[in-house]
Design a protein around this nucleic acid. Structure first.
Lengths: 364, 364
DNA sequence: ATGAAAGCGCTAACAG
DNA sequence: CTGTTAGCGCTTTCAT
């Protein structure tokens, strides 16, 4: 029965005849109709007798026929795929975004190629070449932090592209970001509302745009509450627990005017702050209220007490990215930066008692 | 010149003529040769005059020609794509695996469709259908924890499939896992080597196979050191910091025979242990040595002191998965379970002083 | 050394 | 209502 393999061939090449299932031709034969009829029946197109549709459907099912998307793609000039280029090797930010993106695209039958560039421009270029070769219908860029990034030298033509949690230096491109300013405002306002008068802000490196925007939100909340900005209460540093602990040492070295509240630039910093306060015997939230940023499950839940934090709604961001790219594929154009609201998640480190009041607060 | 669009059509359909770049036909025209010649020239196939090759290459470059992989795939019956189905929505384990997998596959010009099933069988089935439609050349399954999983009812034919960090209940399938037993053995042996005599093991739920295997490795190290197994020193529970803290309360409630070393089932538990020991005023590693499992950067670095931990080498696991699937695509067959060694990463929570001796230790 | 032509599996326009 | 056919962009014999 089996003819012996006539050609050993390169091992990485498939023996096509083996793997690929029945074709539309086989279905046509089985149902006793023409190829065109099968196509119409299976796509609910054209005008066919109900009985024919059923006969074809039946034959297709019996054979286990599954249309070949590649052929379809070739014909339609649309591949039903988009590429996702990520520079967040750790996945902390990319995964929720991907989840949202994918859930939206999946409904339109389009699949996502995920590529990890890990900040290597050469690698990114290669990935882009590959994706272009695969004729993706769109492109999504993601990065670890929301800062500008130079476009690598690949001609994308007018391929629909969106930058999520990441920015392009090309003003014509479209960027989707969390509302950092509003998020920080929300956190600081919550600290005010729970009685804070001396509110410090311990955050990441000032070269991050997110750090500057969050600072602005913090400042706005202070102003609104009639509180003065104090240079010694704004501490940019690193995104680490280590820095959070160190910042507490700085803030509380002179007990004179130590803060009664701290807004952290991320949850890791917040956790460091909590640990250091604990070491000093200071009660949270009794003596000091603490609010984090990111609402990173593993951090906020493990913290003692559990951490109140700002959620950037990354999954929603991903969903919106999906919706936009679909519209762009449909011919619409977008450009500029759009920001989506953050949400305050209240837990015990600050204001859990005022839960009903603030839990739903959203920025913007 | 342009004829007006005769059909407004669904907005999500591409206007093909716009987007797709030059075809091989355009190159042929530009270079003044036939289509077949262009194909040969670009693929270094057949036998062509050197000058012709160059002329074609030049024309292709000038036009910015990029071969259409879809057409190629249709012809060859190989799509140069594989699907990755992940059930680890959090990404903690999937990302490193994906990174390794992708780096290997990328070199063979094959791209990865990433699909998130988040433990929803229906969703997984849909993804599989979609991937089959796209004629992926292979399939990789990943899960959050290395436990058996039922196969969803989709006929995969003889499509090359590998389960990484995850298992199938079909004995014919191929599974790639970390050597949990060996990893735990490594950790426990290290605790022995640094002077531990009363070594406890605080870990996750016993229904996880990984928990049982790690327990076995722990037991083997004890036996090898002539130490007795003690039921009260083996504490299965949850994968949380909370549980780590609680376990310390249990272990040290009677100061009588408290442990001098603790092997944790993961880094979160280990971190909880460290915090609780600290609360009790116990010095690590002076009074109690602690070893974690996972070597999760954000945990081990933030811990005080920094955490000695077992690395499962997930990226390597992903690479191996990539190599195997390539070989399977090439026609080879694999089945059964294979385990790759873990590595001990020594830090201050136990034995950093003995660094040179154990840092490179590998299981198996 | 190069060209011509037959598909890969499917869709859509046009006949019948 | 259904069949026929011309491609989609590329590879690969087989002629020339």
């Amino acid at each position: 029965m089996n003819k012996l393999p006539p050609d050993p061939a390169p091992a990485t090449r498939l023996d096509r005849s083996q793997r690929s299932g029945p074709t539309i031709r086989d279905v046509a034969r089985a149902a006793g109709v023409s190829i065109g009829t099968v196509s119409k029946a299976l796509n609910n197109a054209g005008t066919l007798k109900q009985e024919t549709r059923e006969r074809v459907a039946e034959a297709a099912r019996a054979l286990g026929f599954r249309p070949n998307d590649l052929a379809q793609a070739l014909h339609r000039g649309q591949s039903f795929t988009v590429g996702l280029i990520s520079n967040d090797s750790f996945g902390r930010f990319t995964m929720p975004i991907l989840e949202g993106l994918e859930s939206v695209l999946h409904d339109e039958r389009i699949a996502v190629f995920m590529c990890n560039a890990t900040d290597d421009p050469e690698r990114e270029r290669e990935h882009l070449e590959q994706l272009m070769g695969k004729r993706v219908d769109g492109l999504v860029f993601t990065a670890r932090r929301a800062d500008r990034r130079p476009s690598v030298g690949v001609n994308l033509g007018d391929l629909p592209t969106v930058f999520v949690f990441s920015q392009s230096d090309d003003p014509r491109s479209f960027c989707l970001l969390p509302d950092d300013e509003g998020g920080a405002y929300l956190g600081a306002r919550h600290l005010v509302a729970t009685g804070g008068r001396r509110i410090a802000h311990v955050t990441g490196p000032e070269r991050f745009e997110a750090v500057r925007l969050r600072r602005d939100g913090y400042r706005r909340a202070l102003a609104e509450a009639g509180l003065d900005w104090r240079d010694d209460f704004f501490l940019p540093g690193e995104w680490s627990e280590q820095w959070g602990r160190q910042a507490v040492d700085i803030l509380f070295s002179s007990t004179a005017a130590a803060p009664d509240s701290i807004l952290a630039g991320n949850d890791q910093i917040a956790r460091g702050i909590l640990d250091a306060l604990r070491d000093r015997g200071l009660n949270v939230p009794g003596q000091v209220g603490v609010v984090g940023f990111d609402n990173w499950g593993v951090m906020v839940e493990a913290a003692r007490p559990r951490l109140t934090s700002i959620d950037m709604n990354l999954s929603t961001l991903g969903q919106e990215a999906g919706r936009r790219i679909l519209r762009m594929i449909g011919g619409e154009h977008f450009s500029g930066v759009e920001r989506l609201p953050c949400t305050l998640m209240v837990r015990e480190s600050c204001g859990a008692q005022a839960k009903t009041l603030f839990q739903e607060a959203r920025s913007t």
